[in-house]
Design a protein around this nucleic acid. Structure first.
Lengths: 205, 205
DNA sequence: CACTAAGCGGAGGTTGCCGTCCACTTCTGC
DNA sequence: GCAGAAGTGGACGGCAACCTCCGCTTAGTG
């Protein structure tokens, strides 16, 4: 069953509005405000997105394309380290472009569109694999270090995006240098994949 | 003019309750809940702490002692790197112990008790200085990298404290390894001290 | 012990957001 | 172009937290 044309248009208007609103007022903006900006009634918004979660997910979904593009670029790079580090930089840039949403923009690890984000994660694992074989990524790096980095980045963005919007880049470069060989002292054990997965599913408050 | 004894007692009860409440329910807990746990009426709470900010600050103030202790330990260490890194580890541990408050527990950089937190920051600068002279801390480290780290840590704690409460340690070790000599590739420019200071004064959201 | 000012609690008005309901409008297939 | 299904908007009741007001209680003093 096809959606009516005007309904589809409104859906897009809402998503546009939500995108801006979330980005610069955080994930708690009143839905009524989003509806107002979109130029529709609240009821319309609620019909299309019964819960705030649904709306957040839909907005996040729009970003997955950006991650896919970054991933393709990384995989295409003949230099494994450039591929890996480029992807990490791109992912954090994507977060930075929507600072209010940074916490939910961890699409490469766990996104709303299960299939596609799983695919991105697969590709990312391949980047990791190559960079390790190549010797440029330290042996004890684990895939869960990316969500960790993205969470850390979200924290920095939260604190600085208003006053020092490039500060996050410094964090990212520090971490990339730490990720690159040679590994130095041993690291504390990483969380298990299961723990990390749960962490991404129980959004903090 | 001295505060009446019962008033002082209630003040402490409120702070105790607030401490727990903030730690495990985040900085947005209803003040009424804190009052209830403390066993006092809301009015009492509002009289002592007119705004939520005041209460958060008072709670944060209690922690400054922990930072002072960590700092003393760091300064007493004959090995400059152990002193510096030990302090960083301790500071992040303090944040981790109150995950809901991590965002406001950046006392070494900017705390509610101006004089004391300035003193802690001074001491921290000394740690930085020594470790750089010693050659164990990279030359291009800047003092603002600590608030950056603390914000990053807050982000990781936010995401993982419920499911993987030790995950933050891995971030910290990665960063400490990045901070330690030899420095590798150059880093992006850090935010200016003024920017960072503003960032810590405009609490996100 | 008695007086008083400091302190107390909780009732209740206020606000802001949620999410639903329903009378009205607009698409779309025939 | 018409029928009716699909879609719409905004009014509305509910709720949760805020914060103030005021009559009562109690610590501290002489």
């Amino acid at each position: 069953m096809m959606m009516r044309a005007d309904a589809a248009r409104n859906r897009e208007l809402i998503l546009d509005a939500a995108c801006h609103a979330f980005a610069d007022r955080g994930p708690d903006v009143p839905l009524e405000e989003i509806a107002a900006v979109a130029g529709v009634g609240v009821a319309t918004l609620y019909r299309r997105f019964p819960t705030r979660e649904d709306l957040l997910e839909a907005v996040a979904s729009r970003h997955i394309e950006l991650y896919e593009k970054a991933l393709r670029k990384g995989l295409a790079d003949p230099d494994p380290w450039r591929g890996f580090s480029g992807f990490v930089r791109a992912a954090t840039e994507i977060q930075a472009r929507q600072p209010g949403l940074a916490e939910v923009l961890m699409v490469p690890c766990h996104g709303p569109d299960e299939a596609r984000s799983a695919a991105v994660f697969e590709g990312y694992l391949e980047l990791v694999h190559r960079a390790k074989l190549d010797g440029s990524l330290r042996e004890d790096y684990v895939p869960e270090d990316l969500p960790m980095l993205l969470m850390a980045n979200a924290g920095v963005l939260r604190g600085t995006s208003a006053t020092a919007p490039r500060a996050f880049k410094r964090l990212v470069e520090y971490l990339l240098q730490a990720f690159s060989c040679p590994s130095r002292r041993p690291l504390p054990a990483p969380p298990t994949p299961a723990q990390m997965h749960r962490a991404m599913n129980n959004p903090a408050d």
